[in-house]
């Protein structure tokens, strides 16, 4: 049971191992807060779509299963969109088109088709949480690297007197701008993937 949860975080990490959901990963990873917002959105949609697909798997005819999954996913994405728009307008604005695009995030349809439609509700929830957390952690790693090197800051939620922005002493005055631009996203992703390849081949001996 626990294995279904942890596999998404390491062994079958959606971003670095199975390479799914790349567009939002690179598109929103300029600030740490974007990664947190996107991750929360994906965990929510993934968990609920997995629950509903697991519940409805015996009622949905096989031929129309993909459109049905898409409707289920799109409904939860619309909920996320409305909640984010109402309570976190600045986050909604900076994620932009990537919020509605959670619908076509291949991780979610992939889990519905590849896992939830053959398994029970409880296991599907664990699977969704594991995959969602794996996605969020990878996204956090990429955006941490990009924001620290590219702008010399770490942006979190503003609370009380803390405005949410941590400045990194030396890098803040002379950041490597290129890392926060689009080219930097692709370069960081490439080198991280290479690092994980190297690490896993070493671990295997």
């Amino acid at each position: 049971m626990l294995k279904e949860f942890t596999k998404g975080i390491f062994k079958e990490n959606p971003i670095f191992v199975i390479l799914l959901g790349l567009c939002p990963t690179l598109g929103v990873s300029t600030m740490v807060i974007n990664a947190l917002g996107m991750g929360a959105g994906v965990i929510f949609v993934l968990t609920f779509s997995n629950i509903f697909v697991a519940l409805l798997k015996d009622f949905i005819p096989t031929k129309v299963r993909i459109p049905s999954y898409i409707v289920i996913i799109a409904s939860f994405v619309t909920i996320v969109e409305m909640v984010m728009h109402a309570y976190m307008p600045s986050l909604f604005a900076s994620l932009g088109v990537f919020v509605p695009l959670i619908v076509v995030n291949c991780i979610i349809l992939g889990r519905a088709e590849g896992f939830a439609n053959q398994n029970g509700v409880l296991v599907s929830i664990l699977d969704a949480l594991g995959m969602g957390i794996g996605f969020t952690l990878s996204l956090l790693l990429i955006s941490l690297i990009r924001e620290v090197l590219g702008s010399g800051t770490i942006t979190l939620f503003a609370m009380g007197s803390f405005d949410g922005v941590i400045e990194i002493p030396l890098l803040f005055n002379a950041p490597m701008r290129i890392i926060s631009l689009s080219a930097g996203a692709l370069l960081v992703m490439g080198y991280l993937k290479a690092f994980f390849n190297w690490y896993s081949s070493r671990a295997r001996g």
């Binding site: 631009l181 689009s182 692709l186 370069l187 490439g190 993937k193 290479a194 390849n197």
Partner: peptide, 16 residues
Amino acid sequence: PLQGVPVAFISGGLMA
């Protein structure tokens, strides 16, 4: 370690 996908990303970065 760079073969396949990683080097594709890096080339994409240089194109960008």
